[in-house]
């Protein structure tokens, strides 16, 4: 990642959505289709969206993870039975950028959703594809360079990640 020196450098900007899954699907939809739906709801033409599939066997490579401003985690496949303790550790220790949005997708009943919500009170829990799309759009339209506030937000996020990566 390279630092944005000026606010104007932010335009155009590409955000990556980190997808952590073993099946590439969620709520019976392909993640690529869900991302396409998210993309369609992004306003303006200054923000590009690409999904990034990170191998769950390479979770120690945190440098790659933190470059994504939205983390989408399939709870049933990644966290339910503590399948990937390192991922749990990242979430517990909030080892993701402050400006990132972590969305945990729970494919299950309301009792399961409530349980996950109480386990991760500081994260967003989506229990349907519609919620996942809406939450992602909420975040991405906020950090959208079409507004000055959005540009500032992106720059702040970029600075935070660049500092963490040691590039500034």
């Amino acid at each position: 990642m390279q630092p944005y020196k000026k606010l104007e450098d932010v335009v155009p900007h590409e955000e990556n959505i980190l997808i952590l899954t073993t099946s590439d699907t969620c709520f019976n939809y392909d993640f690529s289709d869900i991302v396409e739906e998210i993309r369609e709801g992004i306003r303006g033409d200054k923000l590009l969206i690409e999904e990034y599939y990170h191998s769950l066997s390479d979770l120690s490579n945190r440098d790659k993870l933190i470059q994504n401003s939205v983390w989408v985690i399939h709870w049933n496949e990644c966290l339910k039975d503590d399948q990937y303790p390192q991922l749990g550790f990242y979430l517990e220790t909030r080892s993701y950028p402050n400006e990132a949005e972590v969305i945990i997708c729970v494919d299950g009943g309301s009792a399961t959703v409530s349980k996950v919500e109480s386990e991760y009170p500081h994260l967003t829990v989506a229990s349907s594809k519609e919620q996942l799309v809406a939450y992602s759009r909420g975040h991405l339209n906020t950090a959208n360079p079409i507004t000055k506030g959005g540009r500032k937000k992106i720059k702040r996020w970029n600075e935070e990640v660049c500092e963490d990566l040691g590039v500034i």
Binding site: M1, Q2, P12, H13, E14, E15, N16, D24, L48, E50, Y52, Y53, S55, K64, Q67, N68
Partner: peptide
């Protein structure tokens, strides 16, 4: 136009 992460993905390609 891509982020550095996407650029890396384009250069490396994807296994799965």
């Amino acid at each position: 136009q891509h982020s550095q992460l996407s650029k890396e993905t384009i250069i490396r390609g994807q296994q799965n």
